[in-house]
Design a protein around this nucleic acid. Structure first.
Length: 575
DNA sequence: GCCGTTTTCGGCCCGACTGTTTTCAGTCG
């Protein structure tokens, strides 16, 4: 049984328990375990098989959960889950996806009206039966009707790059709001997550009404969900929820810290605060005394974390993974920055499926401050992209040689994105690959093969003497295609052993490797290359998304190959 | 359900907003 399946089982168990009104902390224990297991790169079954290690060594896994995991791995099911599923139809859980409906109200709808699906819920609202339930009313009934449509959409998260577009236009919109002293965007956007569920906007102002009035006039706003004294929520025409919070300057740092999250990071932070007889909320840090609470800071994030003798964590690290342990051990790693990037080692031209000539791509890279670029067009197997056979590839490399002779302070490297064939093995002969400066190996076909097959293909590529890097190693397309079934732990170990590089593809729809796998690769000493996979000149702008993801994985400049100067890179490649 | 140089029991982050109450429960982040 795969880690994701175990995690899904625990999440489902948590949903069902919550629905039944179980102790919320017990529910949280299941959710924490699900998150931990999902983030693990190593298969749980491997830990179980290893006599040296115990599941209870994992934080948040006690005797009970360890036994349940063991049962799941051994039998493929969990009696407790089966029983709950027999008692509560799984479709009932979809009710929880309606904004405004939580476990209590959903349970009441189920027990009193026998509602099990969204369709039945809609019918009951339209018949006016919901308003008669205790705790419900006409307004609640109407809100449910209005929100049922979002039950499906609420699951969808938008790409970080899309959220960034909204952020830029909102910044512009706020720029002529005189009541506003400062605006910042928090939440998962600030943490640089690959996808964003909703947008959190933080404004410093003493005139919250004016700010909210101005906010409501933002052209994308389609409806106001809620509006209070300090907090307002709207939904945009595209269905994105934006939460606005207005705070005083002396609370700005505390509010920014709070709204940046993550929720789990905040839970840990506030737990630590309690141990010190402090309280942290969105208004500041308070010392708890017999006389009451005493404000001791909160204007900046430095004041909040400083009160705890903690460093100001880069937002990308605030996921309650390793950051608190790192802070205990010493200074945090200095994360890689966009300005550290010196070159791009994965790009296409109009020779295959790109929309820019060799010269246009090179100029675009140079304009962005890069000093080298590998042209890595597709190989012959990728016929839809007019992939290159040996003759065309060698001809392209000859053109690159002539082009390089005209350049100063910039170099185009002769590369290829060589397909890893379905049956295994590389799509181009060894004697051709041997002449390349940089070889990306990647899978395009046979993505639905078994875990053993896919993993073996990639391991072969890693062992191939002329392969430099594995490009988009898991093949995921965010919101569109799952990663292929690959043993990423084995891939990372092999890359470490054979000193091969793994790509972090910066395309905002890929971001593959993801943050967790980047961290796992780093822990094994595997170098990462952040590449845009640009198919047109503007594609080089994607580098920032890749850097954000790398930062989330805790990568430093030294961990990223293309922060090196060209001479350093060539030395590393022994070219 | 987890966890422990303040605890093996009794904690577990904290507050805003809404709608339904007549002082608060539920939901959300």
């Amino acid at each position: 049984m795969k880690n994701t399946q175990i995690a899904d089982s625990f999440d489902q168990l948590a949903d069902l328990l919550e629905f039944q009104g179980a102790n919320p902390f017990r529910v949280r224990a299941y959710r924490n375990a699900a998150r931990l297991i999902r983030d693990l790169t190593e298969p749980i079954a491997g830990i179980l098989a290893d006599g040296q290690r115990k599941l209870t060594d994992l934080p948040g896994i006690g005797q009970d959960l360890a036994a349940k995991i063991e049962t799941l791995v051994e039998t493929g099911e969990l009696p407790q889950l089966s029983e709950l599923l027999a008692a509560v139809p799984p479709s009932v859980l979809t009710l929880l996806r309606v904004p405004g409906l939580g476990p209590k109200k959903a349970a009441l709808l189920h027990s009193m009206l026998g509602i099990t699906t969204l369709e039945e819920l809609q019918a009951a609202c339209e018949a006016g039966r919901v308003r008669e339930l205790k705790g419900f009313g006409a307004k609640t009934e109407q809100a449910i009707l209005d929100n049922i449509q979002f039950a499906v959409k609420a699951q969808e998260r938008i790409y970080w790059a899309e959220a960034d577009f909204v952020v830029e236009s909102l910044r512009e919109h706020f720029s002529d709001c005189s009541a506003m002293e400062r605006v910042e965007f928090a939440g998962s956007y600030r943490r640089g997550r690959d996808t964003i569920g909703d947008l959190d906007v933080l404004v410093v102002s003493t005139e919250s009404d004016q700010v909210m009035d101005h906010f409501e006039k933002f052209s994308s706003v389609s409806e106001v969900i809620a509006r209070g004294d300090t907090k307002m929520s709207v939904r945009t025409l595209e269905g994105l929820q934006i939460d606005l919070r207005v705070v005083e300057a002396k609370s700005f740092g505390a509010a920014l810290q709070y709204f940046t999250g993550s929720k789990d990071h905040n839970v840990v932070l506030r737990g630590l605060a309690r141990q010190r007889n402090l309280k942290i909320n969105e208004y500041g840090v308070f010392r708890l005394t017999d006389e009451g609470e005493q404000y001791i800071g909160g204007a900046t994030e430095e004041e909040v974390y400083g009160a705890m003798d903690l460093p100001v964590f880069p937002p990308e690290l605030r996921e309650a993974r390793q950051e608190f342990a790192w802070a205990e051990q010493g200074p945090l790693p200095k994360l890689v920055e966009l300005s550290d990037i010196r070159g791009d080692l994965h790009a296409h031209t109009d020779e295959t499926d790109g929309r820019g000539s060799l010269r246009e791509m090179a100029e675009a890279a140079q304009q962005r401050g890069l000093s080298y670029l590998a042209i890595t067009d597709h190989s012959q197997r990728v016929s839809m992209a007019q992939g290159l056979n040996p003759e065309r590839l060698l001809a392209q490399w000859a053109r690159i040689d002539r082009f390089n002779a005209t350049l100063t302070n910039f170099r185009v490297l002769k590369g290829i994105e060589c397909d890893i064939l379905e049956r295994g093995g590389m799509d181009l002969p060894d004697d051709v690959l041997a002449q390349a400066d940089w070889v990306n190996a990647s899978i395009h076909y046979g993505q639905r093969q078994s875990r053993a097959q896919i993993t073996e293909r990639i391991l072969q590529a890693i062992e191939h003497p002329h392969v430099t890097a594995i490009a988009h190693p898991t093949g995921r397309l965010i919101n569109r295609r799952e990663a292929y079934d690959v043993d990423i732990d084995a891939v990372i170990k092999a890359a470490a052993q054979h000193r091969k590089i793994l790509e972090l593809n910066a395309n905002p729809q890929r971001l593959d490797l993801n943050d967790i796998y980047c961290a796992a690769a780093k822990s094994q000493g595997v170098l990462i290359v952040i590449s845009t996979d640009a198919h047109e000149p503007a594609g080089f702008d994607d580098m920032r998304y890749g850097v954000l993801q790398a930062r989330r994985g805790g990568l430093t400049k030294a961990d990223v190959v293309n922060t090196r100067s060209l001479p350093q890179l060539l030395k590393l490649l022994k070219k």
